[in-house]
Write a protein that binds this DNA or RNA. Structure first.
Lengths: 232, 232
DNA sequence: GTCCAATGGCTCGCTGACATACCTTTGGAG
DNA sequence: CTCCAAAGGTATGTCAGCGAGCCATTGGAC
């Protein structure tokens, strides 16, 4: 009964410390707090994450050891993201089922997000945000491309106005990024990606849900094919 | 910065006890373990859920108090789901933002699931499962309709072969069901739903992703309209 | 030059949750 | 009839994580 496997899965993915580390790494690797930028103050961040300051500090400490951040004391101090962001250590062998699962989830939530975003009346702020992320992505170097790319996709999710859907896209992206880190990032793929990004965003701001969805599906299929090719 | 709100959200939705209760209620209210059926043994379930047996037992105890289950000792004993399943206590006033969020998430993941399921080569078991759930849903009484309906939608998610997507659909459904429990369930809506279910499943087994998606979107739009009408 | 507000750094006692072990009940196998 | 395996019921010692408070450092405001 695989359905029961899905519902009776573990209620917690790890202990509080591990989950906190995971969340901070997510924010950094998805480019939500970029190199040189500051994380919220410990007291505030601990409250927002719903963990004690002690636990949060342990997590930050382990990010320091991994080279992700540096902390400075005093007023106008804080915890700052290092530049460059360290490359993620590729973990164990890729399980083919995990690959299929991650790609299926991403396809479902990201095409859904593109369609919903295109079906809404976007505010000026949201429209500008999309275009900003689009150009940032186009101008990004190889080193920072994955972060800028994620940032654009998150902006699309954000444009749906649904926090839950944004969260779902962020999770799906973290999982696929972990896989993408194991294969080379080539300039031709990158150029192709940027063209597709432009098409997607155009359809979203034009308010054409069907076209936005199709463009997003095509875009995702590209990297899915790469992944399956390299990892199978 | 709403994106940071999404990423720096609490790492745990509640304490271990609360999350365990939530998970068990989910399994029962979504009809994954039906009335009269038995939950896995405490020792096994505690392991699967990743909580201690003490915590699991506290959760089961509170389900007993709420009338969801009864426990029997001895070999061939266990914890059994009561018949009928108690009606859920409608909680506080509905926040319009929560409503929009839940509906957007559901639309995205469920249409994605329908499309992915239709795009796969289904095994005989999966196809039979879909058809079984479809007829169960058609023959369901008003009292049990919501559970059978959820069960069918979960079978569609399951047919994608992606555990993560199945989980996402289950979560989205729990949230919308909590809202649907606040509005009346009328026989005409029910009949209409069943017709749509048949169309969706037909397109999935026929392997037509585009049509399956469209049918699912239409189906979900129906209840979305009802919800917005009654709760806004 | 002095002050001070905001930040990271640290300590200690309390509680929830866990692992483990053992007890009690039940009903089929033999 | 007897036994015993599998299930729920209970007790206990340990530890991660929390809350709360205090200390140390820093750089701008005045």
């Amino acid at each position: 009964m695989p359905l029961q496997d899905a519902l009776f899965r573990p209620v917690r993915a790890g202990n509080a410390f591990e989950e906190t580390v995971e969340r901070l790494v997510q924010a950094i690797r998805l480019g939500v707090v970029g190199p040189g930028e500051r994380l919220p103050a410990e007291r505030e961040l601990a409250t927002r994450l719903g963990v004690s300051r002690v636990t949060l500090r342990e997590a930050i400490r382990s990010l320091q050891d991994a080279g992700y951040v540096e902390s400075r004391r005093g007023r106008y101090g804080g915890t700052f993201v290092n530049s460059p962001v360290p490359v993620a250590a590729p973990d164990r062998q890729v399980d083919p089922e995990e690959l299929a699962d991650a790609l299926t989830l991403r396809l479902a939530v990201e095409t859904g997000a593109a369609e919903c975003a295109a079906g809404r009346a976007l505010g000026a702020v949201e429209r500008r945000n999309l275009l900003t992320r689009l150009t940032e992505c186009r101008d990004a170097s190889l080193e920072e491309y994955r972060r800028k790319d994620s940032r654009l996709h998150l902006a699309i999710a954000e444009a749906t106005g649904s926090p839950s859907l944004t969260t779902a896209v962020a999770d799906a992206r973290m999982r696929t990024n972990a896989l993408l880190d194991r294969i080379p990032l080539l300039p031709p793929n990158l150029a192709h990606s940027n063209e597709q990004h432009e098409v997607i965003v155009t359809h979203i701001v034009a308010g054409d849900p069907e076209a936005a969805r199709r463009a997003m599906a095509e875009h995702l299929d590209g990297t899915a094919l790469l992944l399956r090719g390299f990892l199978s």
